[in-house]
Design a protein around this nucleic acid. Structure first.
Lengths: 238, 238
DNA sequence: TCAAATAACTTGTATTTACAAGTAAAAATT
DNA sequence: AATTTTTACTTGTAAATACAAGTTATTTGA
């Protein structure tokens, strides 16, 4: 796929182990090889191995026990958009389709935006888009995205259908999500939202307001997500 | 307060810096002292300092920038029960009162519990309690807690009014929450829930189902939380 | 046989050292 | 004066080492 960039060793091992867990090579409750064994297996030193394991533990893939080892913890297969960092989203990309409602357009920022904006962001204007995301052809997320228009040439003319916005940003602009914050509310569905999510008006909808930090200083992604949680739950770790 | 246990250096520095940020000694956007300076200030080595900073970054108190430094990031003062680890909860304890609805009782587990249970947990039975938590005298959380009855002598006879369950577990049983997972849904308020949260029946309520891991192997805390998000949002980092 | 002590593992904490890579300010050059 | 280069400072990555502390299986002792 992408270019084989020189990624750090600890990140490499993280990806390997995460993949192994995803593929079921290590199952729920299994013990990962000990840190010492991993050192020998992959030719790294313990601090490096430990850094990989720390990240895995942080992401909830393993639970570390002093004196015992690192126990694999398979996360329930629920909708996991709460974890966007790393290479893959927690929800399988296979069954998740994207339908564009409003193609990316450059507009001024809303007057009372949900997050405070820097002056640079305000001047740059806002790339706005609306997407509907369907899980097994059932609409689950109604997603409004906002990005400051800084160093993103030709982004409004790119193909977004069935492709992750994050993937496009990473592949074409080397932008990676490093983390973020969010507010969560339960609100009644408006007429517009209920239409998109196939709900009755007034039915409970989960509303997320998210601000995502990137490796590009000063560049943030914002999104307002309305989520139909009738059949699926949002899953998260803390 | 509690006994001065020998806490690790990196944890000590974490608490110090977090306190300084909380107290406003470092404000939004400020640069923390460099890692080298922190080493000298607190007589630690860089890996130790870095461990503290990594935890702070993970908890969202700082954002690290290679070549620049660690920038303080003040989190919005919203309801932050999503972060329970560490010593203090993200929501100020001052304004949050607790009212017991059902005093702790030992009962068998529900047949279809929201999380799978180990055989040990099933045998031990379940300490059950219901609490209402009020922010500025407005009911915000309706909280049902479940704990497996393992090595928790006399817990059903303890005072829980206006005291954190976590604090009691830590002070009397040396149990600390290390992390956990949760499912989030938006549901219509039932008659019972709407009564407690001062809402109309059918109004949207945030429902959290949480499983919390402790430093005590095999001991988990479970809670089902119904949250009135009309005025406040749940805040979280990812 | 059973229980306690031991040994052999595991992860946790911490130091020391070294260099790479990114940032920003100072200095040199044009 | 404006631009480029250098320098100094920042965090990122990585190795080698040591001991502490928790867990588990084995060995030892009664």
């Amino acid at each position: 796929m992408g270019p084989v960039r020189n990624i750090p060793q600890h990140k490499r091992l993280y990806e390997i182990l995460r993949k192994h867990i995803d593929e079921g090579i290590y199952g729920e409750g299994d013990l990962l090889p000990s840190e010492h064994e991993l050192c020998q297996l992959y030719g790294m030193t313990r601090p490096t191995v430990r850094q990989s394991l720390a990240t895995l533990a942080n992401d909830g893939f393993i639970i570390k026990h002093q004196g015992k080892g690192s126990i694999v913890h398979i996360l329930p297969r629920e909708i996991g958009i709460l974890s966007v960092s790393g290479t893959t989203s927690a929800v399988g990309d296979r069954n998740l389709k994207t339908r564009i409602i409003v193609r990316p357009v450059l507009i001024p920022w809303e007057k009372d935006f949900m997050f405070p904006l820097s002056s640079l962001e305000k001047e740059s204007g806002c790339i706005y888009m609306e997407r509907l995301r369907l899980l097994n052809d059932v609409p689950i997320f109604y997603d409004i995205s906002y990005i400051a228009n800084v160093n993103l040439p030709r982004i409004t003319s790119r193909q977004f259908e069935n492709r992750s916005l994050f993937k496009i940003l990473r592949d074409h602009y080397h932008i990676e999500i490093k983390g973020g914050e969010q507010r969560i509310k339960a609100i009644p569905a408006s007429a517009r939202i209920s239409g998109f999510l196939h709900l009755k008006k007034g039915q409970p909808v989960l509303h997320l307001e998210r601000k995502m930090e990137t490796n590009n200083t000063g560049l943030f992604l914002y999104s307002s997500i309305f989520c139909n949680t009738e059949k699926y739950s949002i899953f998260g770790r803390f």
